[in-house]
């Protein structure tokens, strides 16, 4: 472990990486690093997950799910990810380090679907199985993705927004990225659903705030000021949605006057839904993404057939069903 830490340090992540390594080891434990070829069919595998991040509670839930499954199956799991979801370079470094350390399998969530191609070729050449989670690399190799169907999830958000607005009105979209596939799918799924089913609903503006709370709040304020009759705002991830909620409260607009639909959960968003400042949100099942990734990895190591894509599901929740047992399992504080 020590050696790996040092490498990551040199890669320029210094303290951030230490924090990560700290929490990745916390409950996983164990000696990995030098047990690359302990093949056997009875578990004991070493699987490295390279995530899109680790600070965001979503990724922590993915990690928790993966850890749970890893413990249940008796495999060792390491979890790595860059400090922010814009750091494509850093993430590729981590994937490189993961490949170099020769694990039994790698789980990868692509920040950029093309930049990962050379490393996937390398993994293929070294015969390291790859499974993918959340977002895929455009590679023929390792083409097994466990993720939320983002287009369906965006459409689910649109459906509930349209119902609240009674089929007509104006909506602004605060998305978190122009290049990230989850952001693109949730945006397009939402916009396409509106265009197909609700011609009287107009999307007046789409802006991008990197999922940053303050940036997204500033964007939402500008949208509301530019469009005083705005009926709805849609945030494509947790940070975007919280930014919208903050902007509305900063402007002193009554909660509920503008219908706000968000994504994922987190305690601030849960509270906003409970107190009525948010209509509701679409949640994925991050724990299941983590669990399925580990299951897929083990199946692949043992030579089983895997589907190219498994939808881990998306679910609408609002003040009415937020306390249901099956919803509670998917949202996180």
């Amino acid at each position: 472990m020590r050696k790996r830490k040092a490498t990551v340090l040199l890669a320029g992540l210094s303290a951030a990486a230490l924090a990560l390594a700290g929490c990745a080891n916390g409950d996983g434990g164990g000696d990995n690093g030098d047990n690359g070829d302990n093949g056997g069919g009875d578990g004991g595998y070493h699987i490295i997950l390279v995530s899109k991040g680790f600070q965001h509670q979503f990724w922590q839930a993915v990690q928790a799910g993966a850890q749970e499954e890893a413990d249940a199956q008796g495999v060792t799991m390491d979890f790595d990810g860059p400090a922010s979801e814009t750091q494509v370079d850093n993430q590729l470094q981590m994937l490189q380090t993961a490949i170099d350390s020769g694990p039994d399998a790698i789980g990868y969530a692509a920040l950029d679907p093309e930049a990962c191609l050379p490393l996937f070729d390398q993994a293929e050449a070294m015969d390291i199985p790859i499974v993918q989670f959340d977002a895929a690399c455009n590679s023929e190799y390792g083409n097994y993705l466990a993720a939320t169907d983002g287009v369906a999830a965006g459409a689910l958000a649109a459906e509930n927004m349209a119902e609240e607005l009674g089929g007509e009105g104006t909506i602004g979209v605060v998305a978190h990225s122009q290049i990230n596939s989850t952001s693109i799918e949730r945006r397009d799924g939402f916009i396409d659903y509106m265009e197909e089913n609700h011609p009287d609903i107009e999307i007046v503006d789409v802006q991008y705030g990197d999922g940053d709370h303050i940036e997204s709040a500033d964007i939402a304020r500008a949208m509301i000021n530019a469009n005083p009759d705005l009926d709805g705002l849609y945030g494509t991830n947790e940070g975007s949605a919280i930014g919208i909620v903050n902007a509305i409260s900063e402007l002193g607009i009554d909660p509920g006057e503008i219908a706000v639909v968000g994504f994922d959960s987190g305690s601030a968003q849960i509270e906003a839904i409970q107190d009525g400042s948010m209509l509701g949100a679409v949640t994925q099942d991050p724990m299941e993404i983590g669990r399925l990734t580990i299951r897929n990895a083990i199946a692949l190591i043992e030579g089983e057939e895997l589907p190219e894509f498994t939808d881990t599901g998306s679910f609408w929740y609002d003040a009415d069903n937020i306390d249901d047992e099956d919803i509670r399992q998917m949202i996180y504080e």
Binding site: S14, A15, A16, L18, G22, C23
Partner: peptide, 14 residues
């Protein structure tokens, strides 16, 4: 870098 790391450590990344 140190400040970013310490912020993550002290906050327990939440």
């Amino acid at each position: 870098m140190v400040a970013q790391g310490l912020a993550l450590i002290l906050s327990d990344v939440a």
